[in-house]
Design a protein around this nucleic acid. Structure first.
Length: 425
DNA sequence: TCTGGGGTCCTTTTCCTT
DNA sequence: TCTGAAGGAAAAGGACCC
């Protein structure tokens, strides 16, 4: 794309400079701020069992966190029950444990590793802190989760100097001086390349990528490095002998569309050439709000009816509380079931009036659940509210966001609405 | 021996109406 | 009343992300 001069101005527009900022080992780093005595030790963060975590916190209620003796921290040894590692320190990774690994397996590999509970409230607090520093310096920021953001450097004073390196350094230093946390930054002409650039030098690195760098710095990378190519697409590409981004870029776009679908195939080709014109989005509305939980043991719809019913009700109450806190109601209520073999089944049920109360959500989710196969034991149960609309201060749907009903026909589920709601659990 | 939770987006399937 | 095509909306599933 050739940048065109704005009408009435002689100067050409500035080249687009987009930064991707990624906090380094965010959860572990936040924990080490609280527990500096654990630096260099194998630590895993995760687990869903509360008992060990609560026992630990309770025993040291009056001790300053940094003073808790290392030998008093709970260990992985003997861990039983479900739960996975959310993240692990480098010292723990030496033992072969890592994210998404089951805690019982990790306990065998590294029994002396310290097990810390996940503290999302604390991570969110630190997240808000570093994002405030970013927006103070560069206001056009897109939130991409708790530990990463995109930033539009294009029109920020100094954002073009050394391709963005000067501004990246300023942001990096400001975050470290204020929070003690380090991050890695990539700056490139678009979000796709910026994301890959931020991974080139970790931790605490800055990478500048220009359009002309794509053949030398991007094409040698494995396809999986492209944000949007996951394990499935990677395996399929590999089956066709495509392993690097350069090999992907060599392919005929028509061939890619034929084998990967019109939309995805076309996107793969553009991505391989480092092309991406998505804007940095500073504000967005949620699409759905959900809660789900994995049981300590698999539960059966009939044999464990009471227990399942209680969990189901609690999930609906949690979703309703989330909706209330965020100011939304929703017209589509869904349930999600995971069986012992990890197969997932979902059932949705839409209604005309947006719902926000736990009792209404419970009743409607019950209708969806009635259509799900419940013969096999369940590992997980979830409740989701979609087709959200914003509520005003009084809890009424804002008129402009309510979707007009463009048809008077009743959907199958709306018809079933009228049926008696016999709760499953 | 295992495999969390909270999301988004896209494609395919199913159901309904004309 | 049946049949089939077309098209839209909702439901369901899947891939991906942090």
């Amino acid at each position: 794309m050739t940048p065109l001069a704005e009408p009435g101005t002689g100067a050409p527009p500035r080249p687009r400079r987009i930064a991707h900022l990624d906090m380094d080992a965010f959860y572990a780093s936040v924990e080490l701020l609280r527990y500096p005595q654990l630096k260099g030790l194998p630590v895993v963060i995760g687990g869903s069992r509360r008992q060990a975590n609560e026992a630990f916190a309770g025993a040291h209620a009056d001790t300053p966190l940094a003073r808790i003796p290392v030998h008093d921290f709970p260990r992985l040894r003997g861990y039983t029950g479900r739960g996975v590692i959310t993240t692990a320190t480098y010292a723990a990774r030496q033992f072969g444990v890592g994210s998404a690994m089951g805690l019982m397996k990790a306990a065998l590999l590294c029994p002396d590793a310290i097990l810390l509970p996940v503290d999302f409230d604390e991570y969110r607090r630190c997240s808000r802190a570093f994002k405030a520093i970013v927006t103070d310096i560069a206001p056009v920021m897109e939130d991409r989760g708790v530990d990463e953001v995109y930033i539009d450097f294009t029109d920020v004073p100094g954002g073009q100097r050394e391709g963005g390196r000067v501004l990246a350094r300023l942001i990096q230093k400001s975050i470290f001086d204020t929070t003690g946390l380090t991050c890695s930054v990539g700056v490139a002409p678009n979000k796709l390349l910026a994301k890959m650039a931020s991974e080139l030098q970790k931790p605490n690195g800055i990478s500048i990528v220009h359009e002309g760098d794509v053949p030398t710095r991007i094409w040698p990378l494995p396809c999986r490095k492209i944000n949007g190519i996951g394990p499935k697409a990677e395996a399929k590409l590999a089956s066709h002998g495509i392993h690097t981004i350069g090999q992907l870029a060599e392919r005929d776009p028509a061939w890619l569309r034929q084998h990967f679908g019109q939309a995805y195939g076309a996107w793969l080709f553009e991505a391989a050439w480092g092309r991406d014109d998505r804007p940095v989005v500073t504000e967005s509305e949620p699409v759905s709000i959900s809660r789900e939980t994995t049981f300590e043991r698999d539960l059966h719809a009939v044999r464990d009816r009471a227990e399942l019913g209680a969990v189901f009700t609690r999930l609906c109450e949690q979703v309703a509380a989330d909706l209330a806190r965020k100011g939304y109601a929703g017209r589509t209520i869904g349930v999600k079931l995971r069986f012992a073999d990890f197969q997932i089944v979902t059932r949705d049920h839409s209604v005309v009036e947006p719902l926000r109360l736990a009792t209404d959500i419970r009743r409607t989710a019950g209708l969806a659940l009635k259509r799900a196969p419940l013969q096999r034991p369940l590992r997980l149960l979830g409740v989701r509210v979609g087709k959200l609309c914003k509520l005003d201060a009084d809890g009424h749907p804002l008129p402009e966001v309510i979707q007009p009903q463009n048809s008077t026909r009743k959907t199958p589920s709306a018809l079933m609405d009228q049926a008696q709601s016999a709760l499953v659990f």
